[in-house]
Design a protein around this nucleic acid. Structure first.
Lengths: 146, 146
DNA sequence: GAGCTTTTGTTGACGCGTCAGCATCTTGGT
DNA sequence: ACCAAGATGCTGACGCGTCAACAAAAGCTC
């Protein structure tokens, strides 16, 4: 089972990366772009991006610096908290995101969901939630749900 | 299901890394050390290590350089093929490996296997193999099995 | 065997991720 | 008001992983 799990994991990861190949963004970029594209004003505080992605502040900061250099996002000060930084998606960043998103969803469907029958989808959901919960991973990586 | 899968994957990865924390080696090191520790003379060609791990030659080479600097392995020429390089586990490398291995196995058991009943283990195996196979990942990441 | 192709392994450059440390600001207790 | 404690974000250093390029040796074809 462990071997099967490892191969499945690698297969899915490779498929997702490959699909993103020609879009000009990486899987890591995508993790930041998606919450931004869905957020009000296409902008979020760095803090919220961190809890959304589950990354630490340092990683977020480095990632944002690189994305800012590429013109995907901008950074501005937060009005009511002088410590904070607002991250805003540029038009370019937004366009790239909406262009890339369907492909990622389609890939998950193609390499995973479509291969499973409804019972198996339930099984994988059950297993995944139990394993994550037992390890202390709450059901909610998203800010709104905390 | 997708969210559950992602959280499970992260939970397992974090648990494996954490368990390795005090052993002085990384999860990546471990992937190289295990096949070496099981191989005849505790040595393998770089080529075979590459197919075992599924990495490309460049990554293997960088990894081996760093592991050699830390005294975990040594490199020698291959007798019958002047292009090849034999990688040999040092005593230090072997001791670290056998010291760390049980903990990794135990972790997989604790965070995954022990949480599932026999039917679920079969389910995850079935799903994993189907997904990996459909994506073109043969059933065999190991040299002997190719 | 000359000449081309393939295999094998290494290297340098560069982006990524983690860690430790830092500066700044806010909050809570007194 | 003050001061310690916490929150927020950034940076530099360093190890890791990928990519392109390279060198050397086998293998293959004629």
């Amino acid at each position: 089972m462990w071997r099967a799990y490892l191969r499945m994991q690698r297969a899915i990861e490779v498929a997702l990366v490959r699909q993103l190949g020609e879009t000009g963004i990486s899987r890591t970029d995508f993790e930041v772009l998606v919450p931004l594209s869905e957020a009000k004003d296409r902008s979020l505080r760095v803090r919220d991006l961190a809890s959304w992605t589950g990354w630490d502040r340092s990683r977020i900061s480095h990632q944002l610096r690189r994305m800012e250099e590429r013109g995907l996002i901008t950074r501005e000060d937060v009005a009511d908290d002088a410590r904070g930084t607002m991250v805003r998606l540029t038009d370019k960043g937004y366009e790239i995101t909406v262009a890339a998103a369907p492909g990622q969803v389609e890939t998950v469907r193609r390499v995973l969901v479509d291969l499973l029958d409804p019972a198996e989808i339930d099984q994988l959901t059950t297993i995944g939630e139990r394993v994550a919960t037992a390890a202390g991973y709450a059901n909610l990586p998203y800010p709104d749900e905390r």
